[in-house]
Design a protein around this nucleic acid. Structure first.
Length: 871
RNA sequence: GGAGAAUUAGCUCAGCUGGUUCAGAGCAUCUGCCUUACAAGCAGAGGGUCACUGGUUCGAAUCCAGUAUUCUCCACCA
């Protein structure tokens, strides 16, 4: 019969998750209740649960569970993201292991492999989320490449195209010569590398002079189309309007002037290579320079280079340097450190390259998205992110939405044999459009362009409810706009901003009301937890070790919104200990025998006090939730349960060893126990559900689960009883402290006398005797000689010890306290005698000071009398 | 280079628009307890010049300026 001394989470977790699923508690369909909706930030379909997911989804689950208990129609939509680049890279790597080269496959065959891979491994992370207790509506699980979501993406492309927001154009992109695709900025990792800075001499036309230019990329000089100097640079005034010759190939290029050139850097002269550098490109645009692209897609030199055609760019670099040296056009070579971009997936050095890409015009679209946040329609939590959101929105650049990949939604552009193109959803539509325009559709084809993944995830809050294709459907009408979005600040722009933009464009409404930005999970050394660093614990293992509830509590304890959290397993330990505490409180109550009698007055008082504290705590917790202070809400719950419920309330009503408890009181304890379990449920779903169903709480219907129980609401309560009880607690603590300092065992009863001045202790008498282990509690009007005394509020208390008290020590202690109070009094007096204070401060502040003064004077008086009576 | 944020106890953090003894919480630490729910526990205790320097104010952890250190984001010099 005996029940385990410690809580064993494993069994409960599996049992109750299955039970919740069976009973459809996670399911949501539109009804007359108020909806509360969260769409899960879809993890990469390739993903494996890491600490970031753990934090993020724990927060969402807490919010959704609480909303459900508050009677809202809670709907949490899960799903995964197809993550073009990451997934394609994984599939390519897998194929490589099997000895298959991607290039040898047709698009169709590759996609077949990719889908197979997705079916096999794609659901792992969602399964892992179940372990964490995520109460998602799994029947609504979506994938960004589900047919309906993909169709939404095409519809959106066409919509934006027809509205004139999408254009096709040659722009500088991050080119991965190994993967042969454009990359977004996010996919480029910058690292500092050691390079050489070559000082190259360019001959000035019709002169013996030359001009020296510093470059790290001599292999691109054949693509130079100008030399640029700063117009304010007096050293080069004589070069204005001159022409110079590109070394090795002797092509003539102009000297242009632009203040962009830093006079202090290098030689103060810049070679302009518009095809191979972003800034040069912009400079070239400004000055109408020719663009010469001397690189092939694979990073080798093409015919435009004139020399070294077919050589790889890095080999060419060395060779060009050598050739320059041979003709005496290298002045010097310096070591130099600079930032170079590398492809996240292939690790190839990124080549800024001009290429034809699809773009979404952002400036107009961004405006309403900024307004939403500016005027508070969408709240960012914490607010500090608004500044950078605003900065980004006001300086938004056009978005390169095409990727040269196979895994993703194909850009719905169709080309004929003449390379004319039209935008159309289907092949048939394309033929029709070509026909309309009187053009041929011979040789109809699509390019290997897919849309950036963020383009599809930008639709997520709408597309999961099919709101793009079918905005009038009941789900979309009911659930959209969603309530809270919980995500990482890193993707505020890439994802959150784009959802707002797209959501507004379709619906004229924001896609969500609140954006809760979580922190980054770091290790104790402050490093971001990552797979590559190997400093991230496996959440699944953690849950096995500390229990899911323990880990959930551990994650939340240290994670104020938006601040990074320095994760340490000790938090999980704390969470586990808390679970165990509740478990043992339950064991205590479960073990009680009853006697058929009504509650005693002391028990009634204890219950009244606890209920007051309980209501006070609910108000605090509600406020914390309203401000998205989840860790504070949890801490308030923690203290209510551990301190108020276990350490005080249960101790107060606990019967003597093997004695029965009054039936009425036991019923009250059980009722209150269930109430605190409800408060804990959002944080600790498994433990609370396990206890909820124990027979001591009576038999329950199958559907009577804590997950759908109603969350307690704050009732008004008597604040006086809470205040009075604080004095009682103080008295008990003081007696214990006296014991401790005198080495008196807690088992030895002590007599206590109280000179009650402003509290009626009659209802607390029994409690004090019990918890302070008092042999005889008396009330007196005078000093008690030979006792250790202390003040609880203005009530002087006396503990009579068997041994004679150390009068000197007593005198010293009281004197110290008097000194302290007098010091305090001086500071209060100083304020009150300051005319400017009395004049300027608010009346209630002044009144407060006067109360403090009176209070301190009273206490000093009592203590001084004690001191006098000591001798 | 631009922008934003942070600095409070050994650690992680609260402290909202200046005014209760405002200097707090949890953890950790120390002391005493295997007390009949829980040693994953109980009781008690110690611990901070609120980064530094000025200023505003009757009054500053709180507001302002500067300094130092740290972090994040954005853009990057050939």
């Amino acid at each position: 019969m005996s029940i385990a001394k410690t809580y064993n989470p494993k069994e409960a977790e599996e049992k109750w998750y299955a039970y919740w699923m069976e009973n459809g508690f996670f399911r949501s369909t539109p009804d007359e209740r108020e909806p509360y909706t969260i769409v899960m930030p879809p993890p990469n379909v390739t993903g494996v649960l890491h600490m970031g997911h753990m934090l993020n989804n724990t927060i969402q689950d807490v919010l959704i569970r609480r909303a459900r208990m508050l009677g809202k129609n809670a709907c949490w939509v899960p799903g995964t993201d197809h993550a073009s680049i990451a997934t394609e890279a994984k599939v390519v790597a897998m194929l490589k292991e099997q000895g298959i080269d991607k290039k040898s496959l047709s698009r169709e065959d590759f996609l077949k492999h990719a889908w197979e891979w997705k079916e096999k491994y794609g659901g792992i992370i969602l399964k892992q989320l179940e372990k964490l207790g995520a109460s998602c509506d799994w029947e609504r699980t979506k994938f960004t490449m589900d047919p309906d979501l993909s169709e939404s993406v095409l519809d959106t492309f066409i919509r934006f195209y027809n509205a004139g927001y999408i254009y096709r154009g040659v722009r500088m992109v991050n080119w991965d010569p190994q993967g042969k695709t454009a990359l977004s900025d996010e996919e480029v990792i910058r690292r500092e590398v050691n390079q050489k800075l070559y000082y190259v001499r360019y001959k000035i036309k019709d002169s013996d002079e030359h001009i020296v230019i510093a470059t790290t990329r001599p292999e691109t000089i054949m693509a130079d189309t100008a030399i640029c100097i700063n117009p304010n640079d007096e050293r080069y005034t004589h070069l204005k309007g001159k022409k110079v010759l590109v070394p090795l190939i002797n092509r003539e290029i102009p000297v242009i002037e632009d203040e962009y050139v830093e006079m202090e850097f290098g030689t103060g002269c810049l070679k302009v290579t518009p095809a191979h550098d972003l800034n040069d490109y912009e400079l070239g645009q400004k000055h109408n320079l020719e663009v010469i692209d001397l690189l092939n897609d694979d990073g080798t030199l093409n015919e435009n280079a004139q020399i070294l055609v077919g050589e790889d760019r890095f080999i060419a670099r060395k060779k060009v340097a050598k050739m320059l040296e041979e003709v005496g056009q290298i002045e010097k070579i310096e070591d130099y450190k600079s930032q170079v971009g590398f492809s996240e997936r292939t690790d190839a050095a990124i080549e800024p390259k001009l290429s034809m890409q699809w773009w979404l015009k952002m400036d107009e679209l961004a405006k309403p998205a900024l307004e939403y946040v500016e005027n508070g329609t969408i709240k960012l939590i914490p607010e500090k992110f608004f500044a950078s959101y605003k900065h980004w929105m006001e300086n938004v650049k056009d978005w390169c939405i095409s990727r040269q990949l196979w895994w993703g939604q194909r850009i719905p552009a169709w080309y004929n044999e003449k390379n004319e193109w039209v935008i159309a959803k289907t092949e048939a539509d394309a033929i029709a459009v070509f026909a309309e325009q009187g053009k041929t559709s011979e040789g109809l084809r699509q390019e290997d362009d897919v849309l950036d993944t963020w383009f599809s995830s930008g639709l997520w809050p709408m597309s999961v409810f099919d709101g793009v294709r079918n905005p009038d459907n009941a789900d979309f009408q009911y659930y959209y706009p969603t309530n809270d979005l919980v995500t990482a600040p890193e993707i505020l722009f890439f994802w959150v901003a784009r959802m707002i933009i797209m959501g507004h464009d379709y619906t004229q409404k924001p896609p969500f009301k609140n954006v809760y930005l979580t922190g980054i999970v770091r290790d104790k050394l402050g490093r971001k937890m990552s797979k590559s660093l190997g400093n991230s614990p496996d959440p699944i293992e953690l849950m096995g070790q500390y229990g899911t509830d323990g880990v959930r509590v551990g994650m939340l304890l240290s994670s104020p919104a938006g601040n990074d959290l320095m994760f340490d397993v000790s938090y999980c330990e704390q969470g586990r200990n808390f679970a165990n505490k509740i478990w043992n409180a339950f064991r205590l109550v479960k073990g009680w025998e009853t006697i058929d009698s009504p509650a005693t007055d002391a028990q009634k008082t204890a219950a009244t006090w606890f209920e007051s504290r309980f209501n006070q705590a609910i108000a605090e917790i509600d406020e914390h939730f309203a401000n998205y202070r989840l860790s504070d809400a949890l801490m308030a719950t923690y203290k209510l349960i551990w301190d108020d419920f276990c350490a005080w309330y249960l101790e107060l009503v606990k019967p003597a060893y093997q004695a029965p408890i009054e039936r009425e009181t036991l019923e009250t304890v059980k009722r209150l126990f269930q109430q605190v379990l409800k408060l804990a449920h959002p944080f600790m779903p498994f433990l609370t559900e396990e206890l909820w169903h124990d027979e001591i709480f009576g038999t329950r219907d199958a559907k009577d689960c804590i997950i759908v129980a109603s969350y307690p609401t704050a009732q008004s309560f008597d604040t006086q009883i809470v205040k009075d009880f604080e004095i009682v607690q103080q008295i008990i603590s003081e007696v214990r402290s006296i014991r401790n300092s005198k080495g008196i065992s807690p088992k030895i009863e002590l007599p206590l006398a109280i000179n009650a001045t402003n509290i009626d202790f009659s209802t607390y008498q029994e409690s004090i005797v019990k918890l302070a282990n008092i042999s005889d509690l008396t009330f007196v009007q005078d000093k008690v000689q030979g006792a250790v005394s202390f003040l609880a509020g203005k009530n002087e208390c006396f503990v009579l010890l068997e041994n004679n008290i150390d009068v000197d020590a007593e005198r010293e202690r009281i004197t110290k306290e008097i000194e302290y109070l007098k010091g305090f009094l001086v500071s209060v007096d100083k304020k009150l005698s300051n005319e400017r204070f009395v004049q300027n401060a608010k009346p209630e502040v002044v009144e407060n000071e006067q109360n403090k003064k009176a209070d301190a004077e009273d206490k000093i008086k009592i203590l001084e009398e004690s001191l006098a009576s000591l001798s």
